[in-house]
Nucleic acid binder design. Structure first.
Length: 607
DNA sequence: AATTGCGCACGAG
DNA sequence: CTCGTGCGCAATT
């Protein structure tokens, strides 16, 4: 798996390049990562390759050249490929189909289809295709043939994992414009105007055509990359710029500190605290409403006055990218007016809900643009006093008081709020159904962010993705499920919590496709040890027992103990542990979330 | 010299 | 018309 640090860097780089309208090609990515982090281009390339395999990054051919996309940001239009999308895609088992379903313009979105389609078959008001779905996850589903012929700009995607991509690549290439095809086949670079200038692109393409996908591309890329950044020509410049960390420990990325994506994470932290400080100032001085929260500029200024990471270069663009990311994560929030505010209460607990909500809202954003106006006002107000947190959380947790803790993950499923209690078995069953089937309702509640999103670049939230996936896996009519006693299950709280109840039956779980060792966690549960008290080893054991031995290692690597586990967000699991999306989603949906819910539920009970 | 910003043209819904 | 993309070139750093 890719190193989290690199994942961050690469994604950030891709985002950055895209934001400045530059093609995120291998060369630029390598160069930028090297410049910013001192990473060796080869290493970057290798990591990029891993990301492609994990489908965190999508490799596409656009207008004849290879380009990379942040899978999480590829969303867009689920447009109306309705018929097909719905039909073919729905059966989720078929990854392939899915893969085919999604693709759009230059970018493709693996996720689209999922969201678009089914989710809300009946919802008239709901837009058929909400839209953004963050997902890296869905992509994970797409196994092989990841080429999605692009209808539009002639781009195709090539996802790593496959094995025979060669064909695919070629095919795709040919589909692209004739010119492209030409390039691919012959390798000639003359066809395009740009060709002259960008020989690299063409070259790459040409190679691509002949070999199998990634491997090959790797090779070529390697060349490109190395030439671009490496040794001979101008290796030193960058190094000189940021000598400190970079050169010293590039190799395996051990360098920075312990934490994974240290620099970027750190920048994110600084960003958040900067926003807080600025907000404080504003509040304090102007004391009043009407005073706007800080904007990018102020934040930039603020950051520049503070000491940063040692060889870090804080460019506007970079801050912007990190900012976007933090917004996406829910740690920061952008008001409709473009101001930045910190998400309420300390990140941890609050963010998930805010974020999820946001994503949900985002989805519906299209469907309800009208509401936006109204919301605008709300937003303005809210930005003044605080941070999203309060507003967002409240609605979600119908439970009300207990909301705080539960909110983090509850949101995803709290849609079920209305459901009657279930028995544990039933609960588990239903959980899945619910999750998939109804997020929209919840969403509608909070219009506020919808607009905000409008301003923000598109981002997808993984949140929806899990839901989608889950849904797809289990398809049952919510209504058909008998729910009744499960007195212990809180109404508001997601049903999933029931999974952990002692009565949960492994057998049932398996039927549902959850074979990840329920017995294992039951043991833990019944053992009386609360997840909070788990040590890293316990966590590892838990996941090992749950059927995720490999992934369990990631928890160890990241030193996730019980407390950390309870604070983990979906994204942390999906992207922070360097584990594949498929398992990551399962781990999150079936275990982390469940553990969290259960835990918080208990807490609430005691309160 | 390297980066970044961005107008503008493209092609697809 | 709206969007995502990214070329090409000017402005910055």
């Amino acid at each position: 798996m890719s190193e989290p640090k690199y994942r961050e860097w690469i994604l950030e780089t891709i985002d950055s390049l895209r934001s400045r309208k530059a093609r995120p090609d291998l060369e630029r990515i390598c160069r930028m990562v090297r410049r910013r982090h001192g990473s060796d281009p080869d290493k970057t390339r290798a990591e990029l390759e891993k990301l492609i395999q994990e489908q965190t990054v999508l490799k596409v051919s656009y207008k004849g050249s290879i380009s990379y996309r942040n899978a999480a940001k590829v969303q867009r239009k689920c447009r109306k490929r309705t018929e097909q999308t719905t039909d073919s895609c729905e059966p989720l088992g078929e990854h392939d189909k899915r893969a085919r379903c999604n693709n759009n313009d230059g970018a493709l979105s693996l996720t689209d289809q999922e969201e678009c389609e089914d989710k809300e078959p009946e919802e008239p008001g709901a837009s058929p295709c909400p839209d953004p779905l963050p997902q890296t996850s869905p992509s994970a589903l797409v196994k092989e043939e990841q080429i999605l012929p692009q209808s539009s700009g002639n781009s195709f995607v090539s996802c790593g994992a496959s094995g025979h991509s060669a064909g695919s690549v070629k095919a795709s290439a040919s589909r692209d414009k004739s010119s492209v095809a030409e390039a691919g086949a012959t390798g000639s670079s003359l066809h395009r105007d740009a060709a002259n200038r960008r020989a690299e692109g063409d070259v790459t393409l040409g190679h691509e055509g002949s070999d199998d996908d990634d491997d090959d591309s790797d090779e070529k890329e390697k060349k490109t990359c190395s030439s671009a950044g490496s040794p001979h020509p101008r290796n030193k410049p960058p190094a000189s710029t940021k000598p400190k960390l970079k050169e010293g420990a590039k190799g395996s990325g051990t360098r920075c500190s312990d934490s994974p994506d240290e620099s970027s994470a750190d920048l994110g932290d600084r960003l958040v605290s900067a926003v807080r400080s600025l907000s404080e100032r504003h509040r304090g001085s102007a004391a009043t409403r009407g005073h706007a929260p800080p904007g990018l500029k102020e934040i930039l200024d603020y950051l520049s006055t503070q000491r940063g990471m040692p060889g870090e270069k804080l460019t506007r663009n970079r801050v912007k990218v990190v900012l976007e990311r933090e917004i996406e994560r829910g740690r920061l929030r952008r008001t409709r007016l473009g101001h930045i505010t910190a998400a309420a209460r300390g990140m941890g607990a609050a963010k998930p809900s805010a974020r999820l909500l946001k994503s949900a809202l985002q989805d519906r954003r299209l469907a309800k643009k009208e509401e936006v106006k109204t919301e605008e006002r709300m937003e303005v107000e809210s930005e003044e006093h605080d941070t999203v947190g309060s507003a967002e959380d409240v609605p979600i947790t119908d439970g009300g008081p207990a909301g705080v803790k539960a909110s983090p993950d509850t949101q995803v499923q709290n849609d079920n709020g209305t459901d009657p209690p279930l028995t544990s078995d039933q609960c588990s069953l239903q959980q899945e159904v619910d999750v998939g089937g109804r997020e929209e309702q919840t969403v509608s509640v909070e219009p506020e962010d919808a607009e905000k999103n409008t301003d923000a670049p598109d981002q997808l939230h993984p949140s929806t993705e899990d839901q989608l996936i889950v849904t797809s896996e289990t398809v049952k009519a919510p209504s058909s499920i008998p729910l009744r006693n499960c007195a212990d299950c809180k109404l508001e709280v997601g049903v999933s919590s029931c999974l952990l109840t002692p009565s949960a039956s492994p057998g049932a779980a398996e039927e549902r496709g959850m074979n990840e060792g329920i017995g294992g966690f039951l043991k833990f549960e019944t053992g009386g040890m609360s997840p909070v008290d788990w040590t890293v080893a316990d966590v590892v054991s838990y996941f090992t027992a749950a059927g995720f031995p490999e992934q369990a290692l990631a928890f160890r690597t990241q030193e996730i103990d019980g407390k950390s586990l309870l604070l983990m967000q979906r994204n942390d699991v999906l992207t922070g542990l360097s584990i594949r999306l498929g398992p990551a989603l399962k781990i999150y949906e079936r275990h982390v979330k469940v553990l969290q819910r259960t835990h918080f539920q208990e807490d609430e009970a005691f309160c």
